[in-house]
Nucleic acid binder design. Structure first.
Length: 293
DNA sequence: GCGTCCAGGTCTACC
DNA sequence: GGTAGACCTGGACGC
């Protein structure tokens, strides 16, 4: 039985920088250690969910298969998507190489934002980040996984499928998931996904203008400007800043003497980065996450 | 322990 | 297009 597989990574890839790139690795079914040297997730194989562990091994990812996995090709594809292995950041690194605030980015190989195995999971998690504390986001996502996720052989749980989420009522989201007013949004989104209203899993490669894709993303109830721009970042499109209260507060602190200002001023500040501005602000605001310990 | 206030994005109605 | 208020939860705070 095959116990592990290896996947080549680009030269400018950093495992740790990708795992710790934003909050996703802190949300189940992802599991990681504090150092960000291991990432575990649950893969839906044809026989059911399987827990997978990924570690970095030089120029490769080493994928440990605790259980037999049948669909190896699809597993590799999902891991490639999660770690953004197909994305090219060369242009961004070239642009920031001599930038007084972002010259460190290329050196530390920062800029790949960890994605969930599916776009569906990214959308659900994004809805759970809106208008609440990170603690509540974690609670909602944990509840979804605990109460609707299929169990693996080792007792872990997968992220719920669109079908399992579509099968429960709004009240379930309200009472069991503690999703509050987001309950009808989660329920409606899952039902639309099952009904095939939109093909969200094609979004990573779809050949349409970003503005048009943003419009399609915003057709999901519960996703506004912040949510759509966050999802666009996870699709490798960085035209939007995805401003939320945390990002604004960080900007005020770093660039505006701690004083609040209009979003337009923040937009002007990052305009010079063009189509990379969303990534530029994110790297600028998270620099200390990647400081040498 | 209880009540009140507040922060956090999005939606809808209204202007 | 812009704005106000409602939505809901959990944490902080005062009593």
């Amino acid at each position: 039985m095959q116990r592990s597989i290896h996947i080549k990574v680009p030269q400018d890839f950093s495992f740790r920088a990708t795992v710790l790139s934003h909050g996703w690795s802190d949300l189940p079914p992802f599991e990681t250690d504090q150092a960000g040297s291991t990432l575990r997730f649950v893969f839906y194989d044809v026989d059911g969910p399987v827990k997978i562990e990924v570690i970095s091994s030089g120029s490769e990812l080493c994928v440990d298969l605790a259980d037999k996995v049948i669909e190896i090709a699809r597993l590799k594809k999902e891991i490639g998507r999660m770690f953004c292995l197909e994305d090219s950041l060369g242009e961004f690194y070239e642009m920031t190489r001599n930038d007084p605030r972002l010259s460190w980015v290329a050196e530390k190989k920062v800029g790949r934002l960890l994605r969930s195995p599916t776009v569906f999971e990214d959308v659900v998690k994004t809805i759970c980040t809106t208008n609440c504390s990170w603690g509540l986001t974690k609670k909602m996502v944990s509840n979804l996984v605990e109460k609707l996720g299929q169990e693996t052989k080792d007792g872990s749980r997968a992220f719920p499928t669109p079908e399992s989420m579509a099968a429960v009522s709004e009240d379930f989201y309200r009472e069991e998931i503690r999703a509050g007013y987001r309950s009808p949004y989660l329920s409606a989104f899952a039902r639309r996904a099952v009904a095939g209203d939109f093909e969200i899993e094609t979004w990573p490669t779809i050949q349409i203008e970003t503005a048009q894709l943003k419009k399609e993303i915003k057709s999901i109830k519960g996703i506004g400007d912040y949510g759509a721009e966050t999802l666009l970042k996870l699709l490798g499109r960085f035209d939007g800043l995805a401003l939320d209260s945390w990002l604004r507060a960080q900007y005020y602190k770093r660039h505006n003497l701690g004083r609040a200002c209009d979003d337009k001023k923040i937009e002007r500040h990052y305009r010079k980065y063009g189509k990379w501005r969303g990534l530029a602000i994110w790297c600028d605001m998270t620099e200390e996450w990647f400081a040498e310990k």
